[in-house]
Simulated scan of single mutants.
Amino acid sequence: MHLPRSRHEYLLREVELRGSVRSAEAAARLGVSEVTIRRDIRELEAAGRLGRVHGGAIALGSERGPRAARALVGVVVPSVVAHFLDTVRGMEALAPALHVRLVLGVSHYRPELEEQQVERLLALGATGLVLAPTTRDRSLDDLAAWLGAIPVPLVLVERRIDALTSLSELDVARTDHAHGAVLAVEHLVRLGHRRVGIGVYDRTPTAPRVRDGYATAVSRMGLAPGPDVALSKGDDDPARLRRELADLLDRCVATGTRAVLVHTDDHAARLVETALDRGMRVPEDLAVVAYDDENAELAAVPLTTVTTPRRELGREALQLLADRIAHGTGHRPPRHVELLPRLTVRASCGAAPRS
């Protein structure tokens, strides 16, 4: 059931983006009666937020009348859960101010579906695209050729592709994941650890940057080498992931390593469970810092984690695209915007949680 506040937000967003909203369509979309929507419209009209008309509502007009969205922007991401869901929400929050209507496509990490989604969005009239392209099972030359043939402005989101000039010259908004890993290792060192292990789910575009940051921090701080274990996803073969986590714990015990950085939150939570099942204490016997902060607080021991700025990243990506649409591709140099993650301290590392 949609609460009054969420219904009001929906009505105002539709009016802002399209200039008007029909009561019947809003009722069907929200799963409530038209009577409820008409009551909401009356309340918003009384508050001076919109104008009520027969069959719906319109934006409060200036002498030029209601303002609708000026541009349709396509967004193609690999999934709409966790990380990219929040990124899309960030774009959605900024879209009304830019008078942009967003249309979402999901690729499920499949290059052929990604290309189909882009074709569909272009056919709908998209004047620009925000893309998180799939780099798996696709050569960089093929990716560059495809992106170069797209006839509207592009912004890549949460991708770092420096191997080809044609790719690196596109506008990009991304998180500095290497910085996040450095934050994690530095924090563990401040807590007294001189050896830090790492476990990484390598089949993500984020993983290489996490590894880069970890290696940088270990070298910069003169740490002893810690265990390094590549982790699988675990959904298709849970037994394999259990073996990998057990291997990481075995190596930590054998080398006297009492701190570990684990990408992702889910993998870190499973590592904590494995450690607890062995009778180990977290953080007393093993301090754990996770990466992503998607479900970290819900772990058996709430996880200290690197928190990525997902919503802010969405806002930056959409703003970059709006600027590029407004000014054209040849009037300013490409922009690479990197946002820094922060460390959220909870119970799993041994430090006092921050309020």
Rank of each mutant, 00 (worst) to 15 (best):
E43D: 14
A24H: 10
L85I: 03
R49E: 15
S23E: 00
R29G: 08
L44S: 04
R18A: 08
G55N: 10
R64T: 11
S23T: 15
R29L: 09
A82G: 13
A68Y: 04
R42T: 12
H83N: 04
V53G: 08
G61D: 14
D40E: 05
R67D: 06
V35H: 07
R42W: 06
G61N: 07
R42M: 02
F84V: 07
S79N: 09
H83W: 05
R70Q: 14
R70C: 07
R49G: 04
A27Y: 08
V80L: 15
A71E: 14
D86A: 07
S79D: 12
I41P: 02
R67H: 12
R39C: 02
V76R: 01
A82R: 12
S33N: 05
R22T: 06
R70M: 12
A82L: 12
E9R: 05
T36F: 05
S62N: 12
R39S: 03
R49Q: 13
L85G: 11
T36E: 07
L44R: 03
S23R: 00
E9N: 09
L17F: 01
G55R: 06
H83M: 09
A59L: 11
R42E: 15
A27G: 06
V80C: 07
R64I: 00
S79K: 07
R13Y: 08
A59K: 07
G74P: 10
V77M: 06
H54V: 06
A27V: 08
R18L: 08
F84P: 07
R18I: 01
A82V: 05
R13L: 06
I58T: 15
A26C: 03
G55L: 04
L17V: 15
G48I: 10
G56D: 06
V73R: 13
E63S: 14
L11N: 01
A71D: 14
G19V: 01
I58A: 09
A59E: 15
A47K: 11
E14P: 01
A46W: 08
S33H: 11
S62A: 14
G65K: 09
E45R: 13
V35P: 01
Y10V: 06
E45N: 10
H54P: 02
G56C: 05
R38Y: 00
A28R: 15
L30S: 02
H54L: 10
D86Y: 10
G74L: 09
L85M: 10
E16P: 03
S23W: 01
E34H: 08
R39V: 01
V81M: 05
L85E: 13
T36C: 06
V15K: 03
V77Y: 02
V73C: 12
A59T: 10
D86C: 00
I37L: 10
Y10N: 04
V77P: 08
L85Q: 12
L30N: 08
G31W: 10
A57C: 09
R70H: 14
L50S: 02
R18H: 14
A24I: 05
H83G: 01
A47C: 08
H54S: 13
L72K: 05
E43A: 15
G51Q: 14
V81T: 12
G48Y: 11
A26R: 04
E25A: 13
L72N: 06
A28L: 05
V77F: 08
Y10E: 15
S23C: 06
A27M: 00
R22N: 04
V80G: 00
S23I: 02
H83R: 00
V81K: 04
V21G: 01
A26K: 03
E25L: 11
L85K: 04
S62R: 12
D40V: 00
G48N: 13
